[in-house]
Design a protein around this nucleic acid. Sequence first.
DNA 1: ATAGTAACTATGATAATCATAGTGACAAGA
DNA 2: TCTTGTCACTATGATTATCATAGTTACTAT
Lengths: 138, 138
Amino acid sequence: MLLILRELFFGRRRFDLIAANTGLGPQLVSARLKMLVAEGIAERRAYSVRPVRHDYWLTDKGKALFDVLYAMRNWAERWAYVPGETGEGRVIRYVHRACGADVGTAKVCPGCGAELGYGDLKGEPSPALKAEQLARTA
Amino acid sequence: MLLILRELFFGRRRFDLIAANTGLGPQLVSARLKMLVAEGIAERRAYSVRPVRHDYWLTDKGKALFDVLYAMRNWAERWAYVPGETGEGRVIRYVHRACGADVGTAKVCPGCGAELGYGDLKGEPSPALKAEQLARTA
DNA sequence: ATAGTAACTATGATAATCATAGTGACAAGA
DNA sequence: TCTTGTCACTATGATTATCATAGTTACTAT
């Protein structure tokens, strides 16, 4: 569930992209997305009618989970060991959209001092995570 | 895992208490606690030698997970439906140890303005959660 | 007519979890 | 001494969940 939410927060909304980047099988992705929709955390939208194609968007309830994922990521940056990577940005790099600063693990932007929520930040997988996801696509 | 961590954060350190309050079987509790110890998140301590008895304490790495659990709890207070309960304190009530104020879902104490971390707060299961746990013990 | 794309569903094998019962080392009371 | 009780577990068989893999549907593009 958390892997899927991670992808949705990265802005990856299409089924196959989510399955590929999480490494989960399509039945699991399907089942979990159905739960997320049933709980009002995600929304299924048609982005094309012919052919019929759907993708998944976070609702406000879903976006509010950002604090949870951000806390997990901050914990991981500080405490979790990721092979071949040291220092900050080992897991996910967050940049403040407004001023471009790398926010590290801060709650307030170190560049301009603004409070940070989901909408303010752009997340990007770290090199290690990106490599892992690329390996799965190939 | 999260249920077990919740209990550890409540200060319930004994095996049987954790099993009873989470509703998990003893083999699962055993397996998860072993993982937590292996990851350096919890520590197994002997609190009695005759008879030999052990309990589980959070390490600094474990205590650092408080931010994650607190974010989850805050999300739940705002967004999750708990049957028979409305308003704040439906899940876990947190009180600022220093001044006694109920902190609601704040990051800064509404009573005295201090920053809030794990050591500053005393958590207590809400009436609904407490009833659920009592039912399991009986 | 054939190949490709995207969002899935179906199936059988493997792995995780559950409910339940039991174990070992002791203490406390009759 | 014998029985009962406590606490931290382990063992076992049944039930569920997950995985790897292979379709399926409804199109578009060549």
